[in-house]
Design a protein around this nucleic acid. Structure first.
Lengths: 144, 144
DNA sequence: TTAGTTGCAAACAATTTGCACGTTG
DNA sequence: CAACGTGCAAATTGTTTGCAACTAA
């Protein structure tokens, strides 16, 4: 999910925010790093390009982009959050308890579930996310 | 979701763990406290009954019960975890961003999604949880 | 020019851990 | 008695914040 810079600039500008190089960099990395990087990973990767960027800026940017609905944060592991560009086809995140890899599972049932939720609860659903944990096909066999 | 003490005792004993009064107390409270209490709430409630219990014990017990598959922990808000007895009919947790209340939404699509996941990924799915955030029917009208 | 942004270090909140003592089987 | 459980305080982890300096519109 890569997001065009112009779209972002407008989204930010319209709420009085600035599209600074650091913000664009973080967003760019979010589109380029495969999987679902956490704040630390984004920070390290960003520092290769902009050596003076701070972890605080990464967190502040992620918080901002989340508020704008441009990125989503999920707690895939136990402790810290992982981020991804929003707007992709709805999917379940499956985390393997042994090897740790995250598999995205796309399925139309998710979209249906979301609309059911909207309809039955008469709620304005802003975020929707499903997450599963277990042992992936590979690891379930070799689990000591 | 109340869980019988005998079941627990056996589950714990079989893995070399002891069914201590403190552990049974916490489990009992998990069944009795409505909604999805967090560790702090459980701790305060437990202290009314067993004044010497510590927060560390609550956390250690929750971790243990989670490993045994007896309770589930979810990150409903942003920061800390909420807990509930496991094994209930699968449901979505909807959190209202304004009033904060949590609504459980039961729907058969969830069960179907879980089996699809199992089947397509050939994975051993241990936990499955869906979570939504937004504005509930009441709050969406009055959102200033 | 001025409101918005950033780095740095300190603050925070939730959770975990080391250790000495208590408890259970 | 041997292994497990617990309280306490200290440590850790992930994230947020105050503030002075900086920068984009």
């Amino acid at each position: 999910m890569v997001i065009s810079n112009r779209l972002i600039k407008n989204a930010l500008k319209s709420s009085g925010r600035r599209a600074t190089p650091k913000r664009l960099l973080i967003l760019d990395l979010l589109g380029k790093i495969p999987g679902h990087p956490d704040a630390e990973t984004l920070f390290l990767r960003a520092r290769n390009i902009d050596p003076h960027i701070s972890l605080a800026t990464v967190y502040r940017t992620l918080a901002l982009l989340k508020k704008e609905g441009i990125v989503e944060g999920h707690r895939l592991g136990e402790s810290h959050a992982h981020y991804e560009a929003a707007g992709d086809f709805p999917h379940v995140h499956f985390t393997c308890l042994k090897c740790g890899r995250v598999i995205e599972f796309k399925n139309p049932l998710l979209g249906r579930l979301k609309s059911e939720l909207r309809r039955k609860l008469k709620a304005d659903v802003r975020e929707f996310h499903a997450h599963a944990r277990g042992f992936c096909a590979r690891c379930r066999k070799v689990r000591h």
